[in-house]
């Protein structure tokens, strides 16, 4: 477990009297796509943000390559992060957004142009982000995450707002990263898409771990996962708790 790229040890967070995450212990392996699933308010985003040092845990710890995120010597080169489609200054161009991040990570403008090409945003690079569609902003978020060519990708609802073509593109993209041996962790609501993309599933509900195992164990088959079976299993896991 020590060599896992992402490790959570008894991780927890309370906001006042509300317990958002309680005693999460799990490890995320490289070379596969891991989906973090849970209903709204389950604690997915809080968990991801604790991994990234944006939220301070009230108990336990989250480690990236054996260290807290804040102690990584080159965080952008270690972890790429997609936090949503509304994390951009609307009057800054897509290219300038990437240049701002590149400056902080000691990267060149050449790399900015490369990732713009990678996510197919070159034509729109000089337009204001405020004029981008939701799908374009998701792609820009992905470009930001990939800027420093990290070994780990953490994405919070990366498929939100994408059209079918964009979702297919994203699926291929994430699978490609995992096939290169990188670690991909994504949260999602889209169970059908998870069934087509993920290798491994973590389900949390009410801030607690409900399942941590291969996709096939929840979706009926590892080689031909059934979204309906996955949905039934997900509802059973999450409503058992509510009940």
């Amino acid at each position: 477990m020590e060599s896992l790229p992402i490790r959570l040890d008894d991780l927890g967070k309370r906001f006042g009297t509300f317990s958002a995450v309680e005693g999460l212990t799990l490890g995320i392996q490289s070379g596969r796509v891991t989906a973090l699933l849970g209903p709204n308010g389950a604690g997915k985003t809080t968990t991801l943000r604790m991994m990234l040092g944006l939220i301070r845990p009230t108990m336990g710890r989250a480690l990236i390559n054996g260290r807290p995120y804040a102690e990584l010597s080159a965080p952008r080169r270690t972890v790429g992060v997609v936090l949503g489609s509304d994390c951009f200054h609307p009057s800054r161009s897509g290219r300038n957004h990437l240049r701002v991040v590149a400056r902080a990570a000691h990267l060149s403008d050449t790399r900015v142009d490369e990732v713009l090409e990678l996510v197919e945003l070159t034509q729109a690079a000089r337009r204001r982000v405020g004029d981008y569609s939701l799908g374009m902003r998701q792609r820009l978020g992905l470009a930001t995450a990939l800027l420093a060519d990290p070994q780990i990708l953490i994405a919070d609802e990366p498929a939100n707002g994408l059209d079918p073509e964009g979702i297919a593109w994203l699926r291929g993209f994430l699978r490609g990263l995992a096939d290169e041996g990188r670690t991909v962790l994504m949260s999602s609501h889209l169970l059908g898409e998870v069934a087509r993309t993920a290798d491994h599933v973590v389900v949390i509900s009410d801030g607690r771990l409900r399942f941590d195992g291969p996709l096939g164990d929840l979706a009926g088959s590892a080689t031909n996962p059934d979204p309906a079976v996955l949905e039934a299993a997900f509802l059973r896991l999450t409503t058992e708790v509510a009940g």
């Binding site: 990234l52 040092g53 944006l54 995120y69 804040a70 102690e71 990584l72 965080p75 952008r76 972890v79 992060v81 936090l83 949503g84 509304d86 994390c87 951009f88 200054h89 609307p90 991040v101 902080a104 990570a105 930001t144």
Partner: peptide, 14 residues
């Protein structure tokens, strides 16, 4: 306001 603070702290966690 624009949510860019997360990106800033991801680049420089300290």
């Amino acid at each position: 306001r624009h949510g860019t603070i997360a990106d800033t702290f991801l680049s420089t966690p300290r």
